[in-house]
Simulated scan of single mutants.
Amino acid sequence: MDFSLNEDQELFRKFVRKYLNDQEQTKVARDYIAGNVEAVKQAITGVNELGCMMVNIPDDYDGMGLGKLDLVPIMEEFGRTLMPGVFLETSAFAVPIINQFATTEQKQQYLSEVASGEKAFTIAWLEPSRSYTEKGIQLEAILEQEQFTLNGMKTQVADVAFAQYLIVPVRVNGEVSIIVVDKETPGLTITAQKGFDETRQLSSIYFDNVTVPISALIGPLGDGWGILQEGLLSYNAAVSSVCVGAMEKIIEVASEYACIREQFGQAIGRYQAIKHRLADMKLSLETARSLSYYANWALETTSEDRVEAICSARIFATQAFVEIAAHNIQIHGGIGFTEEIDCHLFVKRSRFYENYLGTQAQYYDQAISALGWDAATKAKEHENLLIS
């Protein structure tokens, strides 16, 4: 069975890569760190003009009508350049759940706006001192007279500057539901937070008697947790692709540096310690790529093993990204710790994905459950995770 990308997908990758190379690759991320949001928005506009945001949106809503696999090369290219923005949250989370659970009217509004590049989504899930679990969702939404009233706080919401809509998990009569909230709704206050990865800027969002119509509800009341799980499958398959792209770029840079940096009269790449480390990095990359391609195929075909495939790809890719980014700094030596080159940017992004929208332990649990392993095996996996 061939899980490689087809000719059209690789051709689209070339167009995206050329555009991002013209934007000087990680310069867009550095512009964001410097506070030049308008420059980043211009770069995002160019990406939208290529059609990246409409790939998996149906034809009926002004999209290309392509599948989830067609997102893979795009996400890999975004990973290579650490592209800021909410492409993942929009194309790999919001679009799939809206397409699957929303009403026709909601699809016409939201999907058409995304396809045109006018609007985008981010996810307001995490609450202070809570976790990405069902019990961690406690923000209350009171339903009266065909509208919801929200009071509470969400934290660590990524890149609100590039999104118009928030996907907000809430409690309605004790059950989890999903509501879409426009960030300009009266009573909503956005406060910037200090984050580890400056290329993904975080915010706290306060809801003070924020009212939204019942038409903002995605799916039936009380079905929110199941909807979130479906969204996470799409999101994590895409995250594995982003990590693959980032790791590929890191290895290219590290290999190039190992060939030009000389020590004791010869390139450091001639020493076995560097050779072995680069070989291990490449092995991890190709393993992650295989897992990622299979995960996205399983998602596309609704394969029976899609949950364990996607969780496995997410776990391995994010862990490998962390390790490879750290190895890259070691290969570069002292200069790897400086601001001038990109090593630290990849380290920070790897740590961002490690526990964003769920911890590694949570995804281990989910994979173990999907595989049907017994309690003893599960306990052993937890023990090994803690040791590592």
Rank of each mutant, 00 (worst) to 15 (best):
F3V: 11
F3H: 15
E10H: 02
L11K: 15
K14P: 04
K18E: 15
K18D: 12
V28F: 09
V47L: 15
Y61R: 06
G67N: 14
L69G: 05
M83Y: 01
P84F: 07
G85D: 07
L88H: 00
E89G: 01
T90R: 10
T90N: 02
F93K: 04
I98D: 10
Q106I: 07
L111P: 01
S112V: 04
S116M: 14
I123N: 00
Y132D: 13
K135Q: 01
Q138N: 08
E146V: 05
Q156A: 12
V160W: 09
Y165C: 04
P169A: 00
E175V: 03
I178W: 09
I179H: 07
D182C: 03
P186M: 13
T189S: 13
A192Q: 11
T199Q: 14
S215I: 05
L217F: 11
D223Y: 12
L233K: 11
Y235D: 00
E248M: 09
E256W: 06
F264A: 14
Q266K: 14
Y271I: 06
L283P: 00
L285H: 11
A298D: 05
L299M: 13
L299Q: 12
T302W: 09
E308T: 08
I310F: 08
F316E: 11
R349S: 11
R351I: 11
N355L: 11
Q362H: 05
Q366C: 03
L371D: 00
I387Y: 06
I387E: 14
